[in-house]
């Protein structure tokens, strides 16, 4: 029933410059590698806009950025980060280190504190000391380095699973043993794939396709993981870190 008081005093509402485009991203750091993944569905409300819209982007040979939230803000943000990294290359004749990219991202996000990019960022890659790293951000730039993080529509489904499988939370090691601090790459890849198939099963905004980026530290090989179908190398130099992408199908319903 129309509210009569509102008829007398037309209430004006501001144009809403935001929307949510669904999807989920996730990243896990290993001892000498990093895995960054995202599904490829883009949706608004109950409609699937497209089954293939990438949310994970290669920034340099040692940095990969995943963005999730409002897609238009996400694309614009990635564009601006890439632009800043190019300027850095022109000024310093090298790629920006990962921890510097992380701080750059926090500065760029906080610069828009009062009209935020409605985007959750996860940055993965290799630090200058050769360790795998994951940085996660909130929309206004709060950030920290972690071993693993999930974000987006199915964050609440995936993150507790990761706590259990990556951090071994609530698992007691056998007497005299301890849990590994870092997992091997094949184990991490299976956990990533399981996380996304589970999220696809129970969340309507997740599905269609999965893109997994793998960043390897200098000198490390894929050993044992080359056999994974659909793997493609994206590395641009031949004496540094290496970047690979694996594309897989997820359920489309």
């Amino acid at each position: 029933m129309p509210d009569m008081t509102s008829l007398a005093h037309p209430q004006q509402r501001a144009f809403n410059p935001y929307t949510e485009n669904g999807g989920t991203i996730l990243a896990i750091a290993g001892a000498d590698f990093s895995v960054i993944a995202g599904d490829t569905r883009q949706s608004e409300g109950y409609s699937i806009q497209t089954r293939y819209a990438p949310k994970v982007f290669r920034l340099t040979d040692r940095a990969v950025l995943a963005v999730n939230g409002f897609a238009a803000d996400g694309n614009m943000f990635v564009k601006k980060v890439k632009q800043r990294l190019e300027w850095y290359r022109h000024a310093h004749a090298k790629d920006m280190p990962l921890r510097a990219i992380a701080r750059l991202i926090q500065t760029m996000l906080y610069a828009r504190r009062f009209f935020p990019y409605y985007v959750y960022n996860i940055l993965g890659g290799i630090e200058e000391d050769g360790t795998g790293a994951v940085y996660s951000f909130d929309p206004v730039g709060s950030y920290e380095r972690e071993a693993c993080r999930a974000a987006g529509a199915a964050q609440s489904l995936v993150q507790p699973f990761l706590d259990n499988q990556i951090y071994f939370k609530n698992q007691v090691p056998a007497p005299g043993t301890s849990h590994p601090a870092h997992l091997p790459l094949p184990t991490v890849l299976s956990i990533v794939i399981d996380s996304f198939t589970s999220a696809t099963e129970r969340h309507i905004e997740v599905g269609d396709g999965l893109e997994i980026y793998i960043v390897l530290a200098k000198g490390r090989t894929l050993h044992g993981t080359e056999s994974i179908g659909g793997m493609q190398e994206l590395t641009t130099t031949d004496d540094g870190e290496r970047v690979f992408v694996v594309r897989r199908d997820l359920k489309k319903d």
Binding site: A154, S156, L157, V158, Q159, P160, F161, N164, Q165, D194, S195, S198, A199, E201, R202
Partner: peptide
């Protein structure tokens, strides 16, 4: 419930 769904679906 959302978290239970996520972990249960995985385990």
């Amino acid at each position: 419930s959302a978290k239970l769904f996520g972990v249960a679906e995985g385990l």
